[in-house]
Design a protein around this nucleic acid. Structure first.
Lengths: 293, 293
DNA sequence: TAAAAATACTCCATAGGTATTTTAT
DNA sequence: ATAAAATACCTATGGAGTATTTTTA
Protein backbone atom coordinates (compact mmCIF):
# COMPACT_ATOMS: atom_id res chain seq x y z
CA UNK A 1 0.00 0.00 0.00
CA UNK A 2 1.40 3.35 -1.05
CA UNK A 3 0.39 6.87 -1.94
CA UNK A 4 0.29 5.91 -5.60
CA UNK A 5 -2.36 3.34 -4.76
CA UNK A 6 -4.26 5.98 -2.86
CA UNK A 7 -4.17 8.26 -5.89
CA UNK A 8 -5.54 5.44 -8.04
CA UNK A 9 -8.26 4.80 -5.50
CA UNK A 10 -9.22 8.48 -5.30
CA UNK A 11 -9.28 8.74 -9.11
CA UNK A 12 -11.69 5.84 -9.36
CA UNK A 13 -13.79 7.03 -6.44
CA UNK A 14 -14.15 10.39 -8.14
CA UNK A 15 -14.88 9.18 -11.67
CA UNK A 16 -16.56 5.85 -10.82
CA UNK A 17 -15.29 4.62 -14.19
CA UNK A 18 -12.18 2.45 -14.59
CA UNK A 19 -11.37 3.70 -18.07
CA UNK A 20 -11.66 7.39 -17.21
CA UNK A 21 -9.81 6.99 -13.93
CA UNK A 22 -6.99 5.12 -15.72
CA UNK A 23 -6.79 7.92 -18.30
CA UNK A 24 -6.54 10.47 -15.51
CA UNK A 25 -3.61 8.48 -14.13
CA UNK A 26 -2.04 8.39 -17.62
CA UNK A 27 -2.23 4.66 -17.93
CA UNK A 28 -4.37 2.03 -19.61
CA UNK A 29 -7.37 0.40 -18.03
CA UNK A 30 -6.17 -3.18 -17.42
CA UNK A 31 -3.22 -2.41 -15.13
CA UNK A 32 -5.38 0.16 -13.41
CA UNK A 33 -8.05 -2.45 -12.70
CA UNK A 34 -5.38 -4.76 -11.39
CA UNK A 35 -4.08 -2.09 -9.01
CA UNK A 36 -7.55 -1.47 -7.62
CA UNK A 37 -7.98 -5.20 -7.04
CA UNK A 38 -4.57 -5.34 -5.42
CA UNK A 39 -5.50 -2.51 -3.05
CA UNK A 40 -8.67 -4.32 -2.03
CA UNK A 41 -6.75 -7.53 -1.57
CA UNK A 42 -3.97 -6.06 0.57
CA UNK A 43 -6.44 -4.08 2.70
CA UNK A 44 -8.76 -7.05 2.86
CA UNK A 45 -11.65 -4.70 2.22
CA UNK A 46 -14.01 -4.31 -0.74
CA UNK A 47 -13.91 -0.62 -1.63
CA UNK A 48 -16.15 -0.68 -4.71
CA UNK A 49 -19.31 -2.53 -5.67
CA UNK A 50 -18.89 -3.02 -9.38
CA UNK A 51 -19.88 -4.98 -12.43
CA UNK A 52 -19.32 -4.29 -16.09
CA UNK A 53 -22.05 -1.64 -15.95
CA UNK A 54 -21.77 0.17 -12.62
CA UNK A 55 -19.12 1.27 -10.16
CA UNK A 56 -20.05 2.49 -6.69
CA UNK A 57 -18.25 3.07 -3.42
CA UNK A 58 -18.97 0.81 -0.47
CA UNK A 59 -19.45 2.52 2.93
CA UNK A 60 -15.88 1.52 3.78
CA UNK A 61 -14.78 3.08 0.49
CA UNK A 62 -16.63 6.29 1.31
CA UNK A 63 -14.79 6.55 4.58
CA UNK A 64 -11.47 5.64 2.98
CA UNK A 65 -11.92 8.31 0.31
CA UNK A 66 -12.07 11.07 2.89
CA UNK A 67 -9.02 9.64 4.68
CA UNK A 68 -7.03 9.27 1.47
CA UNK A 69 -7.69 12.84 0.42
CA UNK A 70 -6.44 14.05 3.78
CA UNK A 71 -3.35 11.82 3.62
CA UNK A 72 -2.50 12.86 0.06
CA UNK A 73 -2.94 16.54 0.86
CA UNK A 74 -0.63 16.22 3.83
CA UNK A 75 1.85 14.15 1.84
CA UNK A 76 2.03 16.68 -0.98
CA UNK A 77 2.29 19.53 1.50
CA UNK A 78 5.23 17.82 3.23
CA UNK A 79 7.09 17.39 -0.07
CA UNK A 80 6.38 20.98 -1.04
CA UNK A 81 7.24 22.44 2.36
CA UNK A 82 10.61 20.75 2.64
CA UNK A 83 11.65 22.61 -0.50
CA UNK A 84 10.39 25.89 0.89
CA UNK A 85 12.34 25.26 4.09
CA UNK A 86 15.44 24.44 2.08
CA UNK A 87 15.30 27.76 0.26
CA UNK A 88 14.52 29.71 3.43
CA UNK A 89 10.92 30.53 2.56
CA UNK A 90 9.55 28.57 5.50
CA UNK A 91 10.70 27.27 8.85
CA UNK A 92 12.18 28.84 11.94
CA UNK A 93 14.86 31.38 12.59
CA UNK A 94 16.24 31.98 16.07
CA UNK A 95 17.36 35.57 16.28
CA UNK A 96 19.23 36.75 19.34
CA UNK A 97 19.67 40.37 20.25
CA UNK A 98 21.12 42.38 23.06
CA UNK A 99 18.60 44.37 24.97
CA UNK A 100 19.51 47.77 23.67
CA UNK A 101 18.91 46.66 20.08
CA UNK A 102 15.26 46.33 21.01
CA UNK A 103 15.22 50.11 21.16
CA UNK A 104 16.96 50.71 17.87
CA UNK A 105 17.20 48.30 14.97
CA UNK A 106 15.29 45.20 16.07
CA UNK A 107 11.72 46.48 15.55
CA UNK A 108 12.34 47.57 11.96
CA UNK A 109 14.37 44.46 11.12
CA UNK A 110 11.71 42.13 12.52
CA UNK A 111 8.95 43.93 10.66
CA UNK A 112 10.79 43.92 7.34
CA UNK A 113 11.81 40.29 7.56
CA UNK A 114 8.37 39.10 8.68
CA UNK A 115 6.84 40.84 5.71
CA UNK A 116 9.40 39.37 3.33
CA UNK A 117 9.21 35.84 4.79
CA UNK A 118 5.81 35.47 6.47
CA UNK A 119 6.17 31.68 6.71
CA UNK A 120 9.38 31.78 8.69
CA UNK A 121 8.68 31.78 12.40
CA UNK A 122 11.01 34.33 13.99
CA UNK A 123 12.01 33.25 17.47
CA UNK A 124 13.44 36.23 19.34
CA UNK A 125 15.89 35.63 22.18
CA UNK A 126 17.00 38.62 24.22
CA UNK A 127 20.42 37.94 25.77
CA UNK A 128 23.51 39.72 27.00
CA UNK A 129 26.25 40.13 24.35
CA UNK A 130 28.59 37.44 25.73
CA UNK A 131 25.78 34.88 25.82
CA UNK A 132 24.84 35.79 22.26
CA UNK A 133 28.39 35.12 21.13
CA UNK A 134 28.39 31.74 22.85
CA UNK A 135 24.97 30.74 21.53
CA UNK A 136 25.96 31.66 17.99
CA UNK A 137 29.04 29.48 18.29
CA UNK A 138 27.00 26.58 19.69
CA UNK A 139 24.36 26.93 17.00
CA UNK A 140 21.66 27.79 19.53
CA UNK A 141 21.05 31.00 17.61
CA UNK A 142 20.88 31.29 13.86
CA UNK A 143 21.70 34.98 13.86
CA UNK A 144 21.92 37.89 16.26
CA UNK A 145 21.98 41.64 16.53
CA UNK A 146 24.84 42.70 18.79
CA UNK A 147 27.93 44.90 18.99
CA UNK A 148 30.32 44.80 16.09
CA UNK A 149 33.94 45.73 15.92
CA UNK A 150 35.58 42.75 17.51
CA UNK A 151 37.50 40.45 15.20
CA UNK A 152 35.06 37.76 14.21
CA UNK A 153 36.49 35.50 11.51
CA UNK A 154 33.90 32.77 12.05
CA UNK A 155 31.03 35.25 11.82
CA UNK A 156 29.38 36.86 8.88
CA UNK A 157 28.43 40.40 9.87
CA UNK A 158 26.46 43.27 8.43
CA UNK A 159 26.55 46.79 9.82
CA UNK A 160 23.05 47.83 10.82
CA UNK A 161 23.69 51.08 12.67
CA UNK A 162 26.28 53.09 14.50
CA UNK A 163 25.69 54.19 18.07
CA UNK A 164 27.68 56.37 20.50
CA UNK A 165 28.07 56.53 24.23
CA UNK A 166 26.27 59.22 26.12
CA UNK A 167 26.44 60.25 29.76
CA UNK A 168 23.50 59.98 32.13
CA UNK A 169 23.45 61.62 35.55
CA UNK A 170 20.83 62.11 38.26
CA UNK A 171 18.84 65.36 38.12
CA UNK A 172 20.71 68.08 39.98
CA UNK A 173 24.06 66.37 39.54
CA UNK A 174 27.00 68.74 39.14
CA UNK A 175 27.44 67.60 35.50
CA UNK A 176 23.77 68.10 34.64
CA UNK A 177 24.39 71.72 33.73
CA UNK A 178 27.93 71.61 32.39
CA UNK A 179 28.26 72.59 28.70
CA UNK A 180 31.14 70.50 27.52
CA UNK A 181 31.73 67.07 28.99
CA UNK A 182 34.92 65.26 28.21
CA UNK A 183 36.71 62.31 29.73
CA UNK A 184 38.27 64.51 32.43
CA UNK A 185 34.78 65.43 33.62
CA UNK A 186 34.41 61.85 34.84
CA UNK A 187 37.26 62.12 37.33
CA UNK A 188 36.11 61.17 40.80
CA UNK A 189 32.66 60.05 39.62
CA UNK A 190 31.19 56.79 40.76
CA UNK A 191 30.63 54.96 37.47
CA UNK A 192 27.96 52.37 36.91
CA UNK A 193 28.53 49.95 34.05
CA UNK A 194 27.92 46.36 33.07
CA UNK A 195 30.88 44.08 33.80
CA UNK A 196 33.27 43.10 31.01
CA UNK A 197 31.93 39.56 31.16
CA UNK A 198 28.54 40.85 30.04
CA UNK A 199 29.24 43.64 27.56
CA UNK A 200 32.94 43.74 26.77
CA UNK A 201 32.50 46.18 23.90
CA UNK A 202 30.82 48.85 26.02
CA UNK A 203 33.13 48.25 28.92
CA UNK A 204 36.22 48.57 26.78
CA UNK A 205 34.89 51.74 25.17
CA UNK A 206 34.22 53.27 28.57
CA UNK A 207 37.68 52.31 29.81
CA UNK A 208 39.41 53.73 26.74
CA UNK A 209 37.40 56.93 26.96
CA UNK A 210 38.39 57.50 30.59
CA UNK A 211 41.99 56.63 29.83
CA UNK A 212 42.02 59.16 26.99
CA UNK A 213 41.46 61.82 29.67
CA UNK A 214 43.93 60.28 32.04
CA UNK A 215 41.12 59.21 34.34
CA UNK A 216 41.06 55.87 36.13
CA UNK A 217 37.40 54.84 36.29
CA UNK A 218 35.89 53.90 39.62
CA UNK A 219 33.07 51.43 39.16
CA UNK A 220 30.61 51.73 42.05
CA UNK A 221 28.20 49.07 40.77
CA UNK A 222 28.27 46.58 37.95
CA UNK A 223 24.75 45.34 37.15
CA UNK A 224 24.16 43.19 34.08
CA UNK A 225 21.24 45.08 32.54
CA UNK A 226 21.22 48.58 31.09
CA UNK A 227 17.79 49.13 32.62
CA UNK A 228 19.24 48.48 36.04
CA UNK A 229 22.08 50.90 35.36
CA UNK A 230 19.61 53.67 34.50
CA UNK A 231 17.59 52.88 37.60
CA UNK A 232 20.66 53.16 39.86
CA UNK A 233 21.60 56.48 38.28
CA UNK A 234 18.04 57.63 38.93
CA UNK A 235 18.58 56.80 42.62
CA UNK A 236 21.64 59.03 42.68
CA UNK A 237 24.08 56.15 43.15
CA UNK A 238 26.40 57.22 40.34
CA UNK A 239 26.67 58.20 36.68
CA UNK A 240 26.85 55.98 33.60
CA UNK A 241 27.86 55.88 29.95
CA UNK A 242 25.17 54.15 27.95
CA UNK A 243 24.27 53.83 24.26
CA UNK A 244 22.65 56.92 22.80
CA UNK A 245 19.71 54.87 21.59
CA UNK A 246 18.71 54.20 25.19
CA UNK A 247 18.61 57.92 26.03
CA UNK A 248 15.55 58.84 24.03
CA UNK A 249 12.91 58.49 26.70
CA UNK A 250 14.67 58.34 30.03
CA UNK A 251 12.81 57.96 33.29
CA UNK A 252 12.00 61.00 35.45
CA UNK A 253 15.03 62.17 37.41
CA UNK A 254 17.68 61.09 34.89
CA UNK A 255 19.39 63.55 32.58
CA UNK A 256 21.44 62.67 29.51
CA UNK A 257 24.37 64.74 28.24
CA UNK A 258 26.34 64.55 25.01
CA UNK A 259 30.00 63.65 25.33
CA UNK A 260 32.87 65.30 23.50
CA UNK A 261 34.48 62.77 21.20
CA UNK A 262 31.99 60.18 22.38
CA UNK A 263 33.13 56.61 21.68
CA UNK A 264 31.22 55.10 18.81
CA UNK A 265 30.51 51.48 18.12
CA UNK A 266 28.78 49.35 15.50
CA UNK A 267 25.51 47.49 15.88
CA UNK A 268 25.69 44.53 13.52
CA UNK A 269 23.69 41.59 12.34
CA UNK A 270 25.82 38.48 12.57
CA UNK A 271 25.60 34.76 12.07
CA UNK A 272 28.01 31.88 12.24
CA UNK A 273 29.51 31.13 8.83
CA UNK A 274 28.94 27.48 9.67
CA UNK A 275 25.23 28.08 10.22
CA UNK A 276 23.18 25.89 7.93
CA UNK A 277 19.76 27.42 8.41
CA UNK A 278 18.84 28.54 4.88
CA UNK A 279 16.74 31.36 6.27
CA UNK A 280 19.88 33.18 7.45
CA UNK A 281 21.17 34.45 4.08
CA UNK A 282 17.74 35.85 3.38
CA UNK A 283 17.78 37.71 6.68
CA UNK A 284 21.04 39.35 5.63
CA UNK A 285 19.56 40.11 2.26
CA UNK A 286 16.52 41.79 3.77
CA UNK A 287 18.66 43.67 6.27
CA UNK A 288 20.98 44.77 3.48
CA UNK A 289 18.15 45.94 1.24
CA UNK A 290 16.78 47.99 4.11
CA UNK A 291 20.11 49.79 4.33
CA UNK A 292 21.98 51.23 7.26
CA UNK A 293 20.24 54.09 9.00
CA UNK B 1 8.39 9.94 -3.75
CA UNK B 2 6.34 7.54 -1.70
CA UNK B 3 5.54 6.51 1.84
CA UNK B 4 8.23 3.84 1.66
CA UNK B 5 10.77 6.53 0.99
CA UNK B 6 9.42 8.48 3.94
CA UNK B 7 9.87 5.43 6.14
CA UNK B 8 13.47 5.12 4.98
CA UNK B 9 14.03 8.78 5.67
CA UNK B 10 12.52 8.56 9.16
CA UNK B 11 14.59 5.45 9.94
CA UNK B 12 17.80 7.26 9.04
CA UNK B 13 16.74 10.46 10.78
CA UNK B 14 16.11 8.46 13.95
CA UNK B 15 19.24 6.31 13.88
CA UNK B 16 21.60 8.70 12.06
CA UNK B 17 23.42 5.60 10.83
CA UNK B 18 22.92 4.13 7.35
CA UNK B 19 23.72 0.59 8.37
CA UNK B 20 21.41 0.52 11.39
CA UNK B 21 18.61 2.27 9.53
CA UNK B 22 18.93 -0.22 6.67
CA UNK B 23 18.76 -3.10 9.15
CA UNK B 24 15.62 -1.62 10.65
CA UNK B 25 14.13 -1.58 7.16
CA UNK B 26 15.22 -5.20 6.66
CA UNK B 27 17.56 -4.45 3.82
CA UNK B 28 21.25 -4.01 3.22
CA UNK B 29 23.08 -0.72 3.42
CA UNK B 30 23.95 -0.02 -0.25
CA UNK B 31 20.40 0.06 -1.65
CA UNK B 32 19.33 1.98 1.43
CA UNK B 33 21.99 4.63 0.80
CA UNK B 34 20.86 4.81 -2.80
CA UNK B 35 17.25 5.37 -1.76
CA UNK B 36 18.22 8.21 0.54
CA UNK B 37 20.17 9.83 -2.28
CA UNK B 38 17.23 9.32 -4.62
CA UNK B 39 14.90 11.05 -2.14
CA UNK B 40 17.22 14.02 -1.89
CA UNK B 41 17.54 14.13 -5.65
CA UNK B 42 13.81 14.02 -6.39
CA UNK B 43 13.03 16.57 -3.71
CA UNK B 44 15.96 18.67 -4.77
CA UNK B 45 16.82 19.15 -1.12
CA UNK B 46 19.77 17.95 0.98
CA UNK B 47 18.22 16.27 4.02
CA UNK B 48 21.39 15.00 5.69
CA UNK B 49 24.87 16.38 6.18
CA UNK B 50 27.03 13.29 6.08
CA UNK B 51 30.44 11.85 5.54
CA UNK B 52 31.79 8.42 6.29
CA UNK B 53 31.95 9.32 9.97
CA UNK B 54 28.91 11.43 10.79
CA UNK B 55 25.28 11.74 9.78
CA UNK B 56 23.18 14.75 10.79
CA UNK B 57 19.89 16.27 9.75
CA UNK B 58 19.88 19.59 7.93
CA UNK B 59 17.29 22.16 9.07
CA UNK B 60 15.15 21.16 6.09
CA UNK B 61 15.52 17.54 7.18
CA UNK B 62 14.45 18.43 10.71
CA UNK B 63 11.31 20.01 9.40
CA UNK B 64 10.68 17.15 6.98
CA UNK B 65 11.05 14.60 9.76
CA UNK B 66 8.15 16.08 11.70
CA UNK B 67 6.03 16.24 8.55
CA UNK B 68 6.85 12.66 7.56
CA UNK B 69 5.93 11.31 10.97
CA UNK B 70 2.58 13.05 10.74
CA UNK B 71 1.97 11.80 7.20
CA UNK B 72 2.93 8.21 8.06
CA UNK B 73 0.75 8.20 11.15
CA UNK B 74 -2.20 9.44 9.15
CA UNK B 75 -1.45 7.01 6.36
CA UNK B 76 -1.32 4.03 8.69
CA UNK B 77 -4.44 5.19 10.48
CA UNK B 78 -6.33 5.41 7.18
CA UNK B 79 -5.36 1.85 6.24
CA UNK B 80 -6.31 0.58 9.69
CA UNK B 81 -9.57 2.51 9.88
CA UNK B 82 -10.89 1.31 6.54
CA UNK B 83 -10.71 -2.22 7.89
CA UNK B 84 -12.51 -1.22 11.06
CA UNK B 85 -15.22 0.44 8.98
CA UNK B 86 -15.53 -2.66 6.83
CA UNK B 87 -16.18 -4.84 9.84
CA UNK B 88 -18.59 -2.38 11.42
CA UNK B 89 -16.31 -1.29 14.26
CA UNK B 90 -16.11 2.30 13.03
CA UNK B 91 -18.03 4.69 10.84
CA UNK B 92 -21.58 5.98 10.81
CA UNK B 93 -24.97 4.43 11.24
CA UNK B 94 -28.15 6.35 10.43
CA UNK B 95 -30.89 5.02 12.66
CA UNK B 96 -34.46 6.18 12.09
CA UNK B 97 -37.17 5.80 14.66
CA UNK B 98 -40.77 6.80 15.06
CA UNK B 99 -41.38 9.21 17.83
CA UNK B 100 -43.02 6.83 20.24
CA UNK B 101 -40.00 4.54 20.19
CA UNK B 102 -38.09 7.33 21.88
CA UNK B 103 -40.20 6.55 24.97
CA UNK B 104 -39.71 2.83 24.89
CA UNK B 105 -36.90 0.96 23.22
CA UNK B 106 -34.68 3.64 21.67
CA UNK B 107 -32.87 4.84 24.81
CA UNK B 108 -31.77 1.36 25.84
CA UNK B 109 -30.87 0.34 22.30
CA UNK B 110 -28.77 3.45 21.73
CA UNK B 111 -26.99 3.05 25.03
CA UNK B 112 -26.19 -0.64 24.44
CA UNK B 113 -25.00 -0.10 20.90
CA UNK B 114 -22.88 2.94 21.73
CA UNK B 115 -21.16 0.96 24.46
CA UNK B 116 -20.57 -1.99 22.15
CA UNK B 117 -19.39 0.15 19.20
CA UNK B 118 -18.08 3.43 20.60
CA UNK B 119 -16.39 4.34 17.30
CA UNK B 120 -19.57 4.18 15.27
CA UNK B 121 -21.29 7.54 15.14
CA UNK B 122 -25.01 6.94 15.64
CA UNK B 123 -27.04 9.46 13.70
CA UNK B 124 -30.60 9.44 15.01
CA UNK B 125 -33.42 10.54 12.72
CA UNK B 126 -36.87 10.88 14.22
CA UNK B 127 -39.50 10.43 11.48
CA UNK B 128 -43.08 9.31 10.97
CA UNK B 129 -43.45 5.61 10.11
CA UNK B 130 -44.25 6.12 6.41
CA UNK B 131 -41.19 8.32 5.93
CA UNK B 132 -39.06 5.74 7.70
CA UNK B 133 -40.23 3.08 5.29
CA UNK B 134 -39.42 5.26 2.32
CA UNK B 135 -36.01 6.31 3.65
CA UNK B 136 -35.08 2.69 4.34
CA UNK B 137 -35.97 1.81 0.76
CA UNK B 138 -33.95 4.73 -0.60
CA UNK B 139 -30.97 3.91 1.58
CA UNK B 140 -31.22 7.21 3.46
CA UNK B 141 -31.48 5.21 6.66
CA UNK B 142 -29.35 2.21 7.54
CA UNK B 143 -31.85 0.87 10.04
CA UNK B 144 -34.94 1.97 11.93
CA UNK B 145 -37.16 1.24 14.88
CA UNK B 146 -40.78 1.26 13.77
CA UNK B 147 -43.99 -0.79 13.75
CA UNK B 148 -43.73 -4.36 12.67
CA UNK B 149 -46.39 -6.71 11.40
CA UNK B 150 -46.67 -5.58 7.81
CA UNK B 151 -45.29 -7.90 5.17
CA UNK B 152 -41.77 -6.73 4.51
CA UNK B 153 -39.86 -9.15 2.28
CA UNK B 154 -37.11 -6.65 1.49
CA UNK B 155 -36.56 -5.90 5.18
CA UNK B 156 -34.68 -7.76 7.83
CA UNK B 157 -36.61 -7.32 11.09
CA UNK B 158 -36.09 -8.11 14.75
CA UNK B 159 -38.85 -7.89 17.34
CA UNK B 160 -37.83 -5.44 20.06
CA UNK B 161 -41.05 -5.09 22.04
CA UNK B 162 -44.79 -5.52 21.92
CA UNK B 163 -47.08 -2.60 22.67
CA UNK B 164 -50.86 -2.21 22.94
CA UNK B 165 -53.33 0.55 22.35
CA UNK B 166 -54.73 2.39 25.30
CA UNK B 167 -57.49 5.00 25.58
CA UNK B 168 -56.84 8.54 26.70
CA UNK B 169 -59.64 10.95 27.59
CA UNK B 170 -59.82 14.42 29.13
CA UNK B 171 -60.22 14.60 32.91
CA UNK B 172 -63.93 14.44 33.82
CA UNK B 173 -64.85 12.68 30.57
CA UNK B 174 -67.72 10.18 30.89
CA UNK B 175 -65.33 7.29 30.21
CA UNK B 176 -62.80 8.44 32.80
CA UNK B 177 -64.58 6.49 35.50
CA UNK B 178 -66.02 3.54 33.58
CA UNK B 179 -64.61 0.17 34.64
CA UNK B 180 -64.63 -1.82 31.49
CA UNK B 181 -64.00 -0.12 28.18
CA UNK B 182 -64.56 -2.03 24.98
CA UNK B 183 -64.97 -1.03 21.38
CA UNK B 184 -68.65 -0.21 21.91
CA UNK B 185 -67.68 2.41 24.50
CA UNK B 186 -66.22 4.45 21.65
CA UNK B 187 -69.56 4.87 19.89
CA UNK B 188 -70.31 8.53 19.32
CA UNK B 189 -66.89 9.68 20.54
CA UNK B 190 -64.87 12.19 18.57
CA UNK B 191 -61.67 10.29 17.87
CA UNK B 192 -58.29 11.90 17.35
CA UNK B 193 -55.72 9.84 15.43
CA UNK B 194 -52.84 10.27 13.02
CA UNK B 195 -53.88 9.82 9.37
CA UNK B 196 -53.27 6.52 7.60
CA UNK B 197 -50.62 8.21 5.48
CA UNK B 198 -48.58 8.82 8.60
CA UNK B 199 -49.08 5.76 10.82
CA UNK B 200 -50.98 3.09 8.88
CA UNK B 201 -50.35 0.42 11.49
CA UNK B 202 -51.94 2.37 14.30
CA UNK B 203 -54.73 3.66 12.14
CA UNK B 204 -55.62 0.18 10.92
CA UNK B 205 -55.55 -1.19 14.45
CA UNK B 206 -57.92 1.56 15.62
CA UNK B 207 -60.26 0.96 12.69
CA UNK B 208 -60.36 -2.80 13.28
CA UNK B 209 -60.95 -2.33 16.99
CA UNK B 210 -63.93 -0.05 16.40
CA UNK B 211 -65.29 -2.40 13.75
CA UNK B 212 -65.02 -5.32 16.16
CA UNK B 213 -67.63 -3.51 18.27
CA UNK B 214 -69.71 -2.53 15.29
CA UNK B 215 -68.70 1.09 15.72
CA UNK B 216 -67.91 3.38 12.80
CA UNK B 217 -65.16 5.72 14.04
CA UNK B 218 -65.62 9.46 13.71
CA UNK B 219 -62.26 11.20 13.36
CA UNK B 220 -62.56 14.76 14.64
CA UNK B 221 -58.87 15.69 14.04
CA UNK B 222 -55.98 13.95 12.34
CA UNK B 223 -52.70 15.50 13.44
CA UNK B 224 -49.43 13.87 12.46
CA UNK B 225 -47.73 13.73 15.85
CA UNK B 226 -48.75 11.71 18.89
CA UNK B 227 -47.79 14.65 21.08
CA UNK B 228 -50.31 16.81 19.27
CA UNK B 229 -52.98 14.15 19.72
CA UNK B 230 -52.40 14.09 23.48
CA UNK B 231 -52.50 17.89 23.58
CA UNK B 232 -55.86 18.00 21.76
CA UNK B 233 -57.32 15.40 24.13
CA UNK B 234 -56.10 17.55 27.01
CA UNK B 235 -58.06 20.46 25.51
CA UNK B 236 -61.22 18.32 25.57
CA UNK B 237 -61.44 18.09 21.80
CA UNK B 238 -61.89 14.32 21.73
CA UNK B 239 -60.47 10.97 22.85
CA UNK B 240 -57.65 8.92 21.36
CA UNK B 241 -56.14 5.45 21.19
CA UNK B 242 -52.39 5.71 21.59
CA UNK B 243 -49.55 3.29 22.34
CA UNK B 244 -49.34 2.22 25.98
CA UNK B 245 -45.73 3.31 26.14
CA UNK B 246 -46.83 6.93 25.70
CA UNK B 247 -49.23 6.75 28.65
CA UNK B 248 -46.62 6.55 31.40
CA UNK B 249 -46.36 10.20 32.26
CA UNK B 250 -49.27 12.00 30.68
CA UNK B 251 -49.78 15.72 31.00
CA UNK B 252 -52.12 17.16 33.62
CA UNK B 253 -55.78 16.85 32.61
CA UNK B 254 -55.40 13.66 30.55
CA UNK B 255 -56.46 10.26 31.87
CA UNK B 256 -55.51 6.89 30.39
CA UNK B 257 -57.71 3.79 30.58
CA UNK B 258 -57.00 0.16 29.73
CA UNK B 259 -58.98 -1.32 26.86
CA UNK B 260 -60.61 -4.75 26.82
CA UNK B 261 -58.92 -6.86 24.13
CA UNK B 262 -56.67 -3.94 23.31
CA UNK B 263 -55.06 -4.26 19.85
CA UNK B 264 -51.41 -5.18 20.13
CA UNK B 265 -48.60 -4.47 17.69
CA UNK B 266 -44.90 -5.12 17.32
CA UNK B 267 -42.09 -2.61 17.65
CA UNK B 268 -39.26 -3.88 15.49
CA UNK B 269 -35.76 -3.04 14.45
CA UNK B 270 -35.52 -3.25 10.68
CA UNK B 271 -33.10 -2.64 7.87
CA UNK B 272 -33.10 -3.10 4.14
CA UNK B 273 -31.67 -6.47 3.17
CA UNK B 274 -29.84 -4.59 0.41
CA UNK B 275 -28.20 -2.29 2.96
CA UNK B 276 -24.44 -2.50 2.69
CA UNK B 277 -23.42 -0.64 5.84
CA UNK B 278 -21.43 -3.24 7.76
CA UNK B 279 -22.47 -1.67 11.04
CA UNK B 280 -26.06 -2.86 10.54
CA UNK B 281 -25.58 -6.57 11.30
CA UNK B 282 -23.84 -5.63 14.50
CA UNK B 283 -26.77 -3.44 15.51
CA UNK B 284 -29.04 -6.45 15.11
CA UNK B 285 -26.60 -8.56 17.07
CA UNK B 286 -26.50 -6.09 19.95
CA UNK B 287 -30.28 -5.69 19.87
CA UNK B 288 -30.69 -9.47 19.81
CA UNK B 289 -28.31 -10.03 22.71
CA UNK B 290 -30.21 -7.45 24.70
CA UNK B 291 -33.35 -9.53 24.23
CA UNK B 292 -36.98 -8.53 23.89
CA UNK B 293 -38.45 -6.85 26.91
C1' DT C 1 -25.29 -5.99 -28.83
C1' DA C 2 -22.30 -2.78 -26.94
C1' DA C 3 -19.82 -0.71 -23.28
C1' DA C 4 -16.89 -1.67 -19.71
C1' DA C 5 -14.53 -4.48 -16.32
C1' DA C 6 -11.63 -8.64 -15.83
C1' DT C 7 -8.01 -11.88 -17.47
C1' DA C 8 -3.73 -13.52 -19.95
C1' DC C 9 0.66 -12.61 -21.26
C1' DT C 10 4.69 -9.83 -22.11
C1' DC C 11 8.17 -6.29 -21.02
C1' DC C 12 10.89 -3.24 -18.57
C1' DA C 13 11.90 0.02 -14.79
C1' DT C 14 13.44 0.00 -10.49
C1' DA C 15 14.08 -1.75 -5.83
C1' DG C 16 17.20 -4.72 -3.64
C1' DG C 17 21.40 -7.89 -3.18
C1' DT C 18 26.69 -8.72 -3.30
C1' DA C 19 31.23 -7.19 -3.94
C1' DT C 20 34.17 -3.39 -3.79
C1' DT C 21 35.96 1.33 -3.30
C1' DT C 22 36.34 5.70 -1.07
C1' DT C 23 36.59 8.60 2.92
C1' DA C 24 37.51 10.45 7.39
C1' DT C 25 39.11 9.81 11.90
C1' DA D 1 43.79 1.08 10.38
C1' DT D 2 39.02 0.87 10.66
C1' DA D 3 34.28 1.89 10.51
C1' DA D 4 30.99 3.46 7.52
C1' DA D 5 29.14 5.65 3.42
C1' DA D 6 29.38 5.55 -1.67
C1' DT D 7 29.86 3.11 -6.09
C1' DA D 8 29.54 -0.75 -9.53
C1' DC D 9 27.17 -4.30 -11.24
C1' DC D 10 23.73 -7.88 -11.14
C1' DT D 11 19.04 -9.91 -10.21
C1' DA D 12 14.18 -10.11 -9.87
C1' DT D 13 9.83 -8.29 -8.33
C1' DG D 14 6.03 -6.02 -9.79
C1' DG D 15 3.94 -2.23 -12.32
C1' DA D 16 2.44 -1.07 -16.97
C1' DG D 17 1.36 -2.21 -21.94
C1' DT D 18 -1.39 -4.96 -25.66
C1' DA D 19 -4.61 -8.35 -26.89
C1' DT D 20 -8.52 -10.77 -25.48
C1' DT D 21 -12.43 -12.54 -22.83
C1' DT D 22 -16.31 -12.03 -19.79
C1' DT D 23 -20.23 -9.71 -18.09
C1' DT D 24 -24.60 -7.20 -17.87
C1' DA D 25 -28.03 -4.00 -19.08
Amino acid sequence: MDTRHMRYFVALAETLHFGHAAARMNMSQPPFSRQISAIEKTLGVRLFERNSRNVALTPAGQHFLADCRAVLDQFDAACRDVQLVACGMKGELKLGFMMHAAHSVIPALVRLYSEARPDVRLILEERIPTDIEEMLAEGKLDAAVTFGGGPAPHLRTLLLARDRLCLIVPQGHRLAGVETIGPQSLAGERLIAAPATVAPTLRTAIGLYCASGGVTPHYAFEPRLQHTIIRLVQEGLGVALIPQSLCDDLAEGVVSRRLDDAPEFDVVLCASRAAKNPAVPQLFEVAGRAGVD
